[in-house]
Amino acid sequence: MKKMRKMLAGLSAMVMVVGLLTACGGGGSDTDSGSKSDGDSGSNGGSTKLTLIMSQRDEWLGEMEEAAVKEAKEMGINLNTVDAQSDTSKMLQFIESAKNDGQKAVIINMVDPETAEQCVEAAGDMYVVFVNRYPSDDSVLNEKVVYVGSDENTSGYFQGEWLAEHFKAEGKSEFSYILLNGILGQTSTTLRTESLLKGLEDNGVKGVEATAPLAAEYQRENAQDMIAPLLKTTQYDAIISNNDSMALGAIEAMIDQGIDPTTVPIVGIDASLDGRQAVKDGTLDMTVFQDPKGQGRGALIAAKNLINGNAINDGTDWELDETGNILWIPFEPVTIDNVDEYDNR
């Protein structure tokens, strides 16, 4: 009996910890559950509850999430953000939980763009706002299922345009490059690389890839390790990267080997904090600003407009595509000339 009592004591201690944690964790949600009861009867009364599902949390996505949370506060929306940690199954579970909770709309940053159809299915009657990752099968988009993001067909294009201009100014119509791809097969990687090549072609400059295709998975360390052995053994006129992190990895590798990174044009995408610093330092020649705050805010605004039955860009300057179901947050090219403008955005 003594043993039993001891074990029971341990058990109750555990339950207490659980209770305590849920109670303190839910500190914010105490007021939520209070206001929720009003919200349920009339959700337009300003206390709408929404869920934002993040595929993961990296620096860029973190900024997007933060902007969405800030916008929600201003709108008086009770926004619950959750992290699917790159797990599609978990993402679907979060969608169903939001539905079970009686929410009217869900904002999804998909883990895998191939699963858009399943997301819509899991959402049932809820409005769906896909943000940042474009559905592979965009036939799922309609007046209840919309997309907010930047058009990847323009991101690489800006790089291509800039490089074409740079080499034309040097009197060259052909150059060789090392290209650091993100994750092969991922839509953003494919489109960034494709639009880069198109940007070069449209501007009459021929680019030749100096190496076998490199995929550094958008990671700085990977890019650094991958490019290091190539720097002194390969002939190249430019380094092109699908994002800033990998470009910074390349710059790091050059400095390690005593090569001056300012001697070769290097271009990235994202205009991240570190990327912008590199532009100011002159090591990164050009990057493309993908607006995390714009996408985060845009997703919230689109969700609210859907619930209120307005056009999804209502109250903003952003443009819709011809179907009215896509809200484009524009990419913007960034160089030393305009980099300062992006510090406070």
Partner: peptide, 20 residues
């Protein structure tokens, strides 16, 4: 599931799971 419905931060959820 329950903590998501309550709007508890995921990090808190993982801390709780760790303790359990």
């Amino acid at each position: 599931n329950g903590l998501v419905l309550m709007g508890v931060d995921d990090n808190m959820t993982n801390i709780l799971k760790g303790i359990i």
